[in-house]
Design a protein around this nucleic acid. Sequence first.
DNA 1: TTGTTTCTCTGAACGGTGTTCATTATTTTG
DNA 2: CAAAATAATGAACACCGTTCAGAGAAACAA
Lengths: 191, 191
Amino acid sequence: MRQLILDGAREVFLEKGYEHTSLRNIAERIEYSPGTIYLYFKDKDEVFHALHEEGFRRMLVQMQPLQHVTHPFERLKAMGRVYLEFATKNKDFYDLMFIISGPMKHENVDHDKWEMGNRTLNYLKDVLRDCQAAGYFKGKDVEYLSFFIWSSMHGMCALYCRDRCQAYPDHNANDLMEQGFNVFVEILEKG
Amino acid sequence: MRQLILDGAREVFLEKGYEHTSLRNIAERIEYSPGTIYLYFKDKDEVFHALHEEGFRRMLVQMQPLQHVTHPFERLKAMGRVYLEFATKNKDFYDLMFIISGPMKHENVDHDKWEMGNRTLNYLKDVLRDCQAAGYFKGKDVEYLSFFIWSSMHGMCALYCRDRCQAYPDHNANDLMEQGFNVFVEILEKG
DNA sequence: TTGTTTCTCTGAACGGTGTTCATTATTTTG
DNA sequence: CAAAATAATGAACACCGTTCAGAGAAACAA
């Protein structure tokens, strides 16, 4: 049953986006009444927490092939590109995973949720350690370095998702992301 | 009248945050009926567009002192710190200015709105050109460079505002921001 | 002064939201 | 088959943004 609700939620969510997905929509889609959802989920946030997890699962799947990139810095670059592509091609999922406030309410977080997210972040840290072993990022703390790198990627994606790329009216948003990423790589290469 | 509404809106907004600010709240605060607001503003977004502008005005004020920092790269660093401080100390304004979807609906943007935002962005570009004149960021396109730098700063602030710093449970969020910024500066220094 | 026009403001109403809960329907168990 | 346990309902509550016919006040004309 829980799975049925989640499937309906994902369908409506991917069709209409987070903003326009109501519990009544979801209930209607799976042909149950609104109240039923509350028998299986505490509230709306808990429903979307599950999709949140699924988002990370999807992202991790897209990152699997990267393990065959042997050179660590190349792997880091490839990771960045996958991240960027994930955000631009799964705007709604990205929004839900990294921007929307709901799924991060303090109660929900400590538990065993957010596991997939941690796994992705740990993967980044591993790659960074590999980079350091290959002579990159000398003397940097992996924690802070990973936070900065994640932030830089997230920053572009967040501006993209929330239409702030319009601040550059003469540039196409996707172009901006790609060229911005290139600048990023060039600068990282020298550090 | 328009000003009265805006003042009420800002009060409620700063007290309860964007999420919990309804037109009914605002109307109640200024002791008018909800309908009245629609005589002076097209809709909710238009009300918050004005606060959006005010946010940029506040940010620009905080950036004024920077013009006395002579060394361009130092000015850039100082600008980053001001940006970071603005975001952490004016979470709600920052959220409204750079994260929330509303104020960026396509209709509203082309007009003469978004002017303050552009002014801030242009100031960043100017500083970057000064940096280039001083030998930094050789051969980089200022458009893409500014987008990347803005993104990096925004990324940290956005993760902060939307509680994603919890992904680092062993680190204090403010510490994360500061150290993340330091990593950023170190890496920029070498480019 | 009175009548008319103009402008401002109201507040009920519409359709939407998340959430609760007494009631009904179904299934499982004794 | 009856009783207990479980599952599902859908009306109701309190909100939301938004609209609009009409009430009230002010300004102007006669």
